[in-house]
Amino acid sequence: MITGSLVALITPMTAEGAVDTNKLDDLIEFHIKEGTHGIVAVGTTGESSTLTPEEHANVIRQVVTRVDGRVPVIAGTGANATHEAIDLTRRAKDAGADACLLVTPYYNKPTQEGLYQHFKAIAEAVEIPQILYNVPGRTACDMQNDTVLRLSGVKNIVGIKDATGDLERGEALIKALPENFAVYSGDDPTAISLILLGGKGNISVTANVAPNAVANAAEAALAGNSDHAHSIDATIASLHSTLFLESNPIPVKWACSQLGLCAEGIRLPLTPLSEPHHSAVRQAMIEAGVLSL
């Protein structure tokens, strides 16, 4: 089972919006050095919705190659068309990813039965461990706990990224699911609390900027050390909020550029972080100890 701090990795881009493969290699080395436990490539934070299928597959392949087995690689392969998700998942398997992360279909708003059939079809088509991803705030599609429980019976569906931020709902899901089915937080502000309730890790945006702190907090929470985990998490609490002052990944890409990890490149329809938010994000980075005055 994959556990711990799993960075929802940005896809570094040049100022013109081209994927920056050199910076991608550098980012991977940065995260391994800082103690990140796993890398999630081409998820929401990786701008999956604006990469071409070829770019999508190439980024996954590059991450797998560069990581070279040092940490697990989870590939974002979700789509709102089932056939497209199957194709991306096959490409990720061929590239050597350890698992795939599949977001609920966005925009077309399927029923709960539609969600079940969608994920079941992908799992049956591609034999690779698959993690569901529920983020209703972005997709306008909310996969209910009962649907997750149904899908937990599908052989290679092994977990879910719960980005609802609803701890009561997350706890109920953890208690109802089989022990070998992993629940990961997809909500940085509540991630430590969810891990202490039985979650297996955090698929984190904040880890792009403060990877060591996020990893240490996750380790403490997984060990059941609540006070230590919350103490570490308190040092990065401002990042958890300011990195969402505009739509993710706008603030986190700007923050990473301030650390010299990438250029400010981002693809339309997303635009660079608005200047009025610069000071707030910069101050949060200073409070977190990742940027000097």
Rank of each mutant, 00 (worst) to 15 (best):
T14Q: 10
I60Q: 13
K161N: 03
D20S: 06
G170H: 02
D25V: 03
S226V: 05
V290M: 05
L197V: 01
E264L: 06
N80I: 01
T11S: 15
Q117T: 14
V59K: 00
A163S: 14
A237I: 12
D87K: 14
P136T: 13
P129M: 01
G69Q: 01
V73C: 04
G265H: 11
R70C: 15
E55N: 07
A207H: 10
G17D: 11
P110S: 00
V158F: 00
A215L: 08
L102F: 11
L115E: 08
M1E: 00
A79E: 01
L239Q: 13
L222W: 06
I2E: 06
I2C: 03
N156C: 02
E168A: 09
N208D: 03
E54T: 11
N156F: 00
S292Y: 07
V64E: 08
N212G: 10
I28D: 05
G114Y: 07
L27D: 09
T11A: 05
L261N: 05
L24P: 01
A220E: 05
A217L: 07
L115I: 13
I192F: 04
N80K: 01
E171A: 13
L115Q: 08
A176D: 07
H83L: 02
C256A: 12
L293D: 05
D26A: 13
A182V: 03
D188W: 09
P276L: 15
G260Y: 09
L194N: 01
G76H: 05
N248Q: 06
K200I: 01
A123T: 02
G265A: 10
A207G: 15
V148P: 06
D94V: 03
T82S: 09
N108H: 11
A255W: 12
N58A: 11
L51V: 06
A234T: 09
I203H: 08
S49W: 07
H37L: 13
R91W: 00
T65A: 15
P136N: 12
L261C: 05
I60D: 10
Q62H: 14
V71K: 04
V19T: 02
K155R: 13
V154I: 15
L9P: 01
N22K: 13
L261V: 05
T11E: 06
A123K: 02
H56K: 13
I122L: 00
N180D: 15
T242A: 15
W254D: 07
L101E: 03
T45H: 14
E171D: 11
D188C: 11
V135W: 08
C100W: 04
V135P: 03
V252W: 03
